[in-house]
Design a binder for these strands. Structure first.
Lengths: 213, 213
DNA sequence: ACCGCAAAGTTACCAGTGCTTACATACAAC
DNA sequence: GTTGTATGTAAGCACTGGTAACTTTGCGGT
């Protein structure tokens, strides 16, 4: 609880973010108080407001980090401009995408709720204003993954945003249910991931029974 | 704000629920305080705890009502045992189901978040224990709607729970995005509803281009 | 080396919250 | 009527988010 090494002047902001991230990992972010955080960090309660206008601003920071982390995972799967070189790679990346999304929701329950809840709305606006984040969004990446399938001759039709929106919904819904529904073990989770993936492929006209996955 | 007619002894519980429901409709449920509620209802703050163990219990009540209302809409669409009599009716009901779910999320933003957020978990357990609510759940209704399609000769394959889970995810995801994403008008909403519906039908092997909707 | 000054942190305070406890009251059953 | 339970009250506790006025710290310019 009590942070051992007293932190140097000016390090409070980062320490607060790290504290909140830990609270998120521990699942009690929703009941975290700024005063307790200040106490644990060995600092007065007023000091917090030198770095964050209010509590929501700190929480928004956490949500933003969450989105960035997830986005980073997606970019690792399909870097910008890195068109899939083989049909198998295109397919594997789609599978990875689904796995990453659903697993993230499953493993970061509390953060997930914040990202798509009230706090999430706060950052949405400022995220689309950030030119670094506005380009090549997770939604864009999903779009590119669909196009990669077509580029590799796996689908006959050019995918459009309605295609992407639908399979995105299926993934998002599966992620939300995997995390909010009755507790499930990893094998069941894996099954949902693979099933969602296969059906999404079929939804854009790619029957994977003809390929190996 | 201030409730005009003083409420009779014993009416506080219902008044509190109604107050919270109104706060939900007005979208400020997340910042509602029990003390303010008591003040507005012309009652002392301690009285609240004669009827609800704590704040979460009251909120859980609201969430439960939300689930019941939504469930009621679903049952109205497909009453228990009421197998669709014609292929067209089976299809229409599926469309109604999707429309109801997504519209509900869109119109009840705050309630939606509560239903699938922290508070939602609290009632989940007690809802599955209630024998009235445990039977013929919304998920079951979705399942029956799929079976109705098959019963009316619209699909060749008997639907299973994996089918239902997938289309459920697609609906749930679309609902969540329709409500959490950038604001959209009713025509755009309608488009998402119809698109989700059509693609779900196709996902279980029913191409609606061969029927009129 | 000194000064100035802005950033960072402190103390003290306000208003408000959830919740508990001890007490007062209404009301129905006996 | 008396009694007992359900209901409501008053006062208080521990805590919260947030603000304002105050010190301290440490860095850049002369």
């Amino acid at each position: 609880m009590g942070e051992a090494h007293k932190l140097k002047r000016g390090d409070l902001r980062d320490a607060l973010v790290e504290y909140a991230l830990q609270a998120t990992r521990d699942g009690h972010i929703e009941v975290m108080s700024l005063r307790q955080a200040a106490r644990d960090l060995g600092v007065s309660s007023g000091a917090v407001y030198r770095h964050f206008a209010d509590k929501d601003t700190l929480l928004a920071e956490i949500v933003k980090i969450g989105h960035c982390v997830l986005r980073g995972k997606f970019i690792a799967i399909r870097p910008e401009g890195a068109i899939a070189k083989t049909p198998q790679q295109a397919i594997d990346r789609c599978h990875d995408f689904v796995r990453t999304y659903i697993t993230f929701a499953y493993e970061n329950n509390a953060l997930w709720h914040m990202m798509f809840g009230r706090i999430g709305m706060i950052c949405r606006e400022e995220m689309i204003k950030n030119p670094d984040l506005a380009r090549y969004t997770p939604f864009d990446i999903g779009m590119e993954l669909c196009r990669d399938l077509h580029r590799n001759g796996l689908t006959t039709r050019q995918p459009d945003v309605a295609d992407n929106r639908y399979i995105w919904s299926a993934i998002h819904g599966a992620a939300d249910l995997a995390q909010s529904g009755a507790r499930m073990d990893h094998t069941e989770l894996d099954q949902i991931i693979t099933d969602t993936f296969h059906r999404n492929m079929r939804a854009i006209g790619l029957d994977l029974d003809h390929h190996k996955t």
